[in-house]
Amino acid sequence: MITAEQKPIDEIREMIAPYKKILALGCGSCVAECASGGEKETGMLASALRMAAKMNGEDVRISEMTIDRQCVNEFVIQLDDVIDQYDAILSLGCGAGVQAVADMFPEVPVIPALNTEFMGETKGQGLWVESCLGCGDCMLYDFAGVCPLARCSKHLLNGPCGGSVDGKCEVNPEVPCAWQLIIDRLSKFGALDRLEKIYPPKDWSKKQGAGPRKIVREDQQR
């Protein structure tokens, strides 16, 4: 999932200040799962903004609406019927959602209410952790299901570095050393010898070789 956190309310208020009719637009996918931009959070943010506007004597109308996915045009199109009533959209989607909405409605300002963080997992109540960089060339087989690019602070492919102590990372003693996890898992599978070879430099062209990446699937386009 894509994780995100809500921006500070003052920053949001500053961005929406020029507008009088605002649609707070939630997204029912990833950001709902990570409790930052789903229907519930959209309602809470809209209420907080309405209250702040009222206390400051501002004449602003803030409505709310949540669609299933802001990053998919088939869902964004639902805004067609209501968009004329607003002079700005406050999107609680991830960075992709904000841009998909902006792309479909070029005349309407779309303002981000969230800071998009990372691709990660829900680890527990109120806890999300990063686990994938989207490098375009998955190496999780080699490293027994633990990604050293996403989870080692130095992105080492031939770790662990000299800062791994008691299974913890030197950068933050609360963070497990990804390389200790890799070694532990590989030894369980009797595959520790996989780490005796030198992994060559990563081909970063698959991640950021020529601007924004694109997937074209002709079989899906017919």
Binding site: N158, V165, C177, L195, E196
Partner: peptide, 17 residues
């Protein structure tokens, strides 16, 4: 090389690499 970091056994593997 850091002989004092963990895990000890792997320190020698890394030295070999």
């Amino acid at each position: 090389a850091n002989p004092f970091a963990d895990p000890l056994e792997f320190r020698v593997v890394r030295l070999a690499k």
